[in-house]
């Protein structure tokens, strides 16, 4: 009885918070998705038209799929870039580990917007990169493709995510008992084989956590594409934003948001499975 009370006290506030600020809005959004219009009398007409429209509009699907692909690309590349970083920090950095770890984290203390604007300065046609390439003679004309493209979105988001993806991998690598690596060497395993057979599988939970950590938010990302993506780099998130802000078509925006949620749920399911021991098995 006492235990239940304590549980209620502990879980109450966050539960209430989630209920009011997450589940309730989600419900409101679900209701909106059936309305015929955002304002006026159309608000009170409930219809399936929005869903019908969404299902027939292939341009929406295409952008959703493109966004999913970008998110998968970014999550995968983040893991590939972050893994050596985390590996170095865990096994090679020695006494410099704390300093290097701090250096990895410190940039994330500055404003997210500021860091994205910085990339505008680097990638822009009069930006750092173009100027440098012109100066060394690698190109003859400033290349406008760098900024306002899907590549710019990918590069910028990679920069944003790598430190965050490195952290769970670092934590997973740190948990590996060094005597396991010694045991592998003792049993005749060469260093690279020890990595493939021991280190990598034991760090998979961290890799998975980092992967989904980057994947899920990137799927709905709209700020970065807005700032560095231009017309070419727009993602599904921008489309949703347009429905709500510009077209004032809240019902359609709601349908699109729910569609993304439906796409993300199986991914989240994978994520929770990755947290278990199943994925660690050979």
């Amino acid at each position: 009885m006492e235990k239940q009370n304590r549980l209620a006290v502990l879980l109450g506030p966050p539960g209430l918070y989630l209920l009011i600020l997450f589940l309730l809005p989600l419900g409101i959004m679900a209701v909106f998705s059936f309305r015929a219009g955002t304002i006026g009398d159309a608000r009170f007409i409930y219809t399936l038209d929005n869903y019908r429209e969404f299902l027939t509009k292939t341009s929406f699907h295409r952008l959703l799929l493109i966004s999913a692909r970008i998110a998968l690309t970014i999550a995968s590349l983040s893991v590939i870039l972050a893994y050596p970083l985390a590996y170095y920090l865990t096994f090679r950095a020695g006494s410099r580990r704390v300093i290097l770890l701090t250096m990895l984290i410190v940039p994330t203390w500055t404003s997210y917007l500021l860091r994205i604007f910085a990339w505008k300065l680097i990638l822009g046609s009069t930006g750092l990169l173009n100027t440098f390439l012109l100066w060394i003679g690698a190109i003859e004309q400033a290349n406008p493709i760098l900024l306002y493209s899907r590549n710019a979105v990918v590069i910028t988001l990679l920069y944003v995510w790598v430190p965050f993806v490195a952290l769970p991998i670092f934590a997973a690598l740190e948990r590996i008992d060094p005597s396991l690596l010694e045991a592998a060497a003792d049993l005749g395993s060469r260093p690279w084989e020890t990595f493939l057979r021991i280190t990598l599988p034991l760090s998979l939970p961290g890799v998975m956590a980092g992967f989904f950590f980057a994947l899920i938010p990137t799927l709905g990302e709209y700020v970065t594409p807005l700032l560095v993506g231009g017309g070419q780099g727009a993602m599904y998130g921008n489309l949703i934003q347009d429905q709500f802000v510009r077209a004032l078509n809240w019902p359609m925006g709601s349908v699109m948001s729910l569609a993304m949620l439906v796409l993300a749920i199986p991914l989240l399911f994978l994520f929770t499975k990755a947290g278990g021991s199943d994925l660690v098995e050979f």
Binding site: D177, S179, L180, E182, A183, I198, P201, L202, V280, F282
Partner: peptide, 14 residues
């Protein structure tokens, strides 16, 4: 040579 470790160092994922 082969070693039997104090904490056994068995591979937990195998």
């Amino acid at each position: 040579v082969n070693t039997v470790f104090q904490n056994y160092a068995l591979f937990p994922h195998m």
